[in-house]
């Protein structure tokens, strides 16, 4: 069990970026302070699948990732998730970054 009141370490991203002893994916995880939660959940989830996928998982993962290794084009979440994410509140936030956006006025008039 963890000690009560233990504080998560806050990482300096510049240091993490150039720490060659850790993988960039791990660096991102540490920076976002997801490390502990991630490893706990993952290890529990993987126990059941481990025997079935032991030989195939590594191959599949590398093949799927191969297309993303040499590009800066971001991969977004599935459309359905994004549709639910971009609700009125989120659009209001983004509309405020547009010059002369009429979104607020529309909302005020007829609740569009």
């Amino acid at each position: 069990t963890r000690l009560q009141g233990s504080v998560k370490k806050t990482w300096d991203i510049t240091k993490l970026i150039y720490m060659n002893n850790i993988d960039p994916a791990d660096a991102i995880r540490r920076w976002k302070q997801e490390e502990e939660e991630f490893t706990d959940d993952e290890s529990e989830e993987n126990i059941e699948d481990e025997d079935e996928d032991f030989f195939t998982k590594k191959f599949d993962a590398s093949k799927a990732a191969d297309a993303n290794l040499d590009t800066f084009i971001p991969k977004h979440r599935p459309v359905e998730e994004l549709k639910s994410k971009w609700n009125d509140q989120k659009l209001d936030e983004l509309a405020s970054r547009f010059l002369g956006s009429t979104r607020k006025i529309l909302n005020g008039n007829d609740g569009d």
Partner: peptide
């Protein structure tokens, strides 16, 4: 800041010896 960016910054450092702060 994602995995791809970190890979790029590490490659830049390896090739030109320059760190981006």
């Amino acid at each position: 800041i994602d995995e791809n960016l970190i890979w790029l910054l590490r490659d830049i450092k390896q090739m030109f010896g320059i760190e981006i702060y």
